[in-house]
């Protein structure tokens, strides 16, 4: 799996360099100001990224040379954990998208209960109690005591 990942990192680095060079070219410059202007430093960074890509390539090449002769690494057959992490990310994005609509208290409580239901399975009472208590107490503590503004949502309080 290491080899595939390294290849992805390499391609990502090159793509990012290209995008960054393009975006740098879009910046407006005027005749006044400091001699370098807003583009020079980013250009240097872009060049640095190309150097990085070259270094990555050398490292990959060396790793492959060290690998040859040995048995090829067994690629990870079980990738199901990526789906679990992906589901957590999507669920978190949903929580954030509805954050101002549902308000902090309700949204957080629902978000927490669902995650705990899956990752701390078999203890529904403890999970619901923790989620609800945490949401209510943290909301009151931060909005009333510390003056942090959190969205109320459609709850009347």
């Amino acid at each position: 799996m290491g080899e595939v990942t390294d290849r992805i990192v390499f391609v990502f680095t090159l793509t990012l360099a290209a995008v960054y060079f393009y975006a740098t070219a879009q910046i407006h410059t005027y005749e006044f100001g400091d001699p370098l202007g807003p583009k020079t430093f980013p250009r240097l960074l872009g060049i640095g990224l190309l150097v990085t890509a070259a270094m990555l390539f050398v490292e990959m090449w060396r790793a492959r040379k060290a690998q040859s002769g040995k048995e090829p690494q067994n690629p990870g057959s079980d990738r199901r954990h990526f789906f679990v992490v992906g589901a957590v990310v999507i669920w978190t994005a949903v929580y954030f998208a509805l954050f101002t609509t549902t308000g902090y208290m309700l949204g957080t409580a629902v978000y927490l209960v669902a995650l705990m239901w899956y990752f701390n399975a078999g203890k529904p009472v403890a999970n619901v109690a923790t989620a609800v208590l945490y949401s209510v107490i943290s909301y009151l503590a931060f909005t009333k005591a510390l003056g942090v503004a959190l969205p109320r949502g459609f709850l009347p309080f």
Binding site: F96, L112, Y118, T130, A131, Y134, S138, V148
Partner: peptide, 14 residues
């Protein structure tokens, strides 16, 4: 940890 990690997200949100 099944309770702890979700709470860390909620704290990060604040």
């Amino acid at each position: 940890s099944g309770i702890l990690y979700p709470l860390v997200v909620a704290i990060s949100v604040i």
